[in-house]
Design a protein around this nucleic acid. Structure first.
Lengths: 348, 348
DNA sequence: TGCTCAATTAAATGGCAGATCAAAACGACA
DNA sequence: TGTCGTTTTGATCTGCCATTTAATTGAGCA
């Protein structure tokens, strides 16, 4: 090959990103001065600082964060990891998780942090730490604990700063932030009992810590009311949208009488209602239904859905603040955020 | 506990991130060799490469991506920006946008890219380029064009690699990927006409490019059927969930007879149906309703919603591939992805 | 002239990659 | 045994883009 690519004039000229040295040259000062000026240091005179800042703004110059991070050994990016179930391919689809993502985005933006989102196979949660291991983020917020308690413990043992949205469990080394699922479940069931319902079914996979606690809450409410817990009324189904349909069908197959359903998520409640209707049941007339999460659509559903509201806004903030504690090397206690029953028409 | 934390030098030792030099020392080789080994260069023997890689893995060492990016002038992070309307505070809430986020996450993950998510005030779209200007991402995908055509043009003129989800507009300097809104609207309206509906209302802010095109599609279908377009049947309301309710109320106030509604989004269709029902209208008996987007819940609504399906999966992939074209300095044509009418019960 | 204080600069640093050159190990072959 | 060639590794130095420390300059003042 006689010639290689043109030496300079090429596309580098048209596109090369400005760097501090360029600003320095154009301003007739050294890079040190530019650096200090842009950082607002008192070591430069007011006059030159203003001059440099204006020049930078007019040229749309911004400091290269990567280089800055390298030099300062700091970083203002937080990793948000959403595990997905490789078996069911349950992706970023449940509206609740997506709302949580939004809430985190708000909380992080407010504090000037960036949000690096990634999805990992729930079976290989080790990979969740990758953005941390490679130095891209200062810590990880994981949405959805599922049943991977052990793997999460391992991450925490490795000193990966990580905060998990989910339930508190015994022997837990990592920090969780979650709603008060037991109370939430109790509120929901107590409400149904107060409405005179006698046979309250529970839909949801009670092996998942959060769902299990909600069921525990229901059982507590039943006991308090002097009613007995009937295992035949508990149907374990996945979190997938079809879950509701499957649960209703399974319940009908069992032939157990029921007059109320407490579903582990709003999505499940909605599909349950639809399926119940297809089978000729009236909601709430014959079967009262209560969901969980209070996703945005809950109020717009037909009938408007009674549900336990998850404190999304506070959750986002709490997750972030606990993570920052960990990042700073302080211990971060797990938090439980109060939940609230929102009564709408699906249960009264 | 009598003793405080163990004495020796170590939480610095335990906490300091390993770097290449450490691995080199532990492996008894030079950093050059480590670098070459981890990069898979042929200049190291198979044997030492394996040895070094195993050592690295056992120590959970990973190359510092920031430093690597700086050195190699490369980067595998893409920015995804969601504008929000500061007036209405419409946040990351419409399920459609959230699904899009999920789809992008998939498409990017598949190609080994990271996703940096941020939200910016729609009135200050300049800020959308910040993650690019600061070198954190190689380009920007913007979800939601709204009415900020001009600002987007400016960004493109600045050579910010940016791809926008939205409608193609005249004199557009930036690349868009979007559904075929005109055809989508036409399909929806033609379907309603075929069902014998005579007075089809349209709900949605037609100043938004995408919505405007959907309305245009409806008008085209009407004209083709020899029906005339009645402006009184077009109700401009925001994309907020309450939009549906407001639109129904406004339409009733106008006193125009109608027997069908084509709503600009599924969310709006759902709230419209609810409001119609409250006012004593049967859906689809008296009023047929068609939505737009085919969000996950559409099929689980009551009645299951007829809607125009947005090609989310393809959209995510297309957005990414066009962005990568731009990043590589090639021009990227705007794309329109075909849409499809999903007929369910709300309209038949 | 000597000295202090403020403003600025030169130079080192951060963690890694790549290029170059030198050194060493190894085998082959005369 | 000595020479040559090949393969593998080491040492060094520079560049990426910024920050920071120590050094330098200039002005003001006794």
């Amino acid at each position: 090959m006689p010639k290689t690519t043109p030496p300079d004039a090429d596309n580098s000229a048209q596109q090369r990103r400005l760097q501090m040295a360029d600003i320095a040259r154009l301003a007739g000062v050294s890079t040190s001065t530019v650096s200090r000026a842009l950082a607002g240091s008192k070591l430069v005179s007011e006059e030159t600082r203003v001059r440099i800042m204006e020049l930078a703004r007019s040229l749309k110059y911004t400091i290269n964060i990567g280089a800055q991070n390298l030099r300062m050994k700091q970083n203002r990016t937080v990793g948000v990891v959403i595990p997905y179930d490789s078996a069911t391919r349950q992706h970023l689809s449940d509206p609740f998780f997506l709302s949580m993502l939004g809430s985190l985005a708000d909380a992080l933006t407010e504090l000037g942090f960036d949000m690096l989102v990634s999805r990992v196979d729930a079976e290989e949660l080790d990979a969740a730490a990758a953005p941390f291991d490679t130095g891209r983020v200062i810590g990880i917020i994981l949405i959805g604990q599922w049943r991977h308690h052990e793997q999460l413990n391992q991450l925490a043992a490795r000193h990966v700063p990580i905060v998990v949205w989910g339930a508190q469990l015994p022997q837990q080394l990592y920090c969780t932030v979650g709603g008060d699922n037991v109370t939430g479940g109790e509120l929901a069931a107590a409400h149904l009992i107060a409405q005179g319902r006698k046979h309250i079914a529970f839909f949801g996979d009670i092996n998942l810590p959060e769902v299990g606690q909600r069921y525990e809450g229901q059982c507590r409410a039943l006991r308090k009311a002097g009613m007995k817990v009937d295992p035949a009324l508990q149907v374990s189904v996945s979190f997938l949208p079809e879950g509701g349909r499957e649960a209703v069908q399974e319940l009908l197959r069992r032939g157990v009488p029921f007059d109320a359903v407490f579903a582990g998520s709003d999505l499940m409640a909605m599909t349950s209602i639809n399926t119940l209707r297809q089978h000729g049941y009236e909601v709430p007339g014959q079967v009262a239904v209560v969901g969980y999460d209070d996703i945005e659509l809950a109020g717009y559903f037909h009938p408007p859905l009674t549900t336990v509201q998850q404190p999304i806004r506070e959750a986002g903030r709490a997750l972030v603040s606990q993570l920052l504690e960990l990042v700073d090397g302080r211990p971060a206690a797990s938090l439980q955020i109060p939940t609230q029953l929102i009564v709408r028409n699906s249960s009264v």
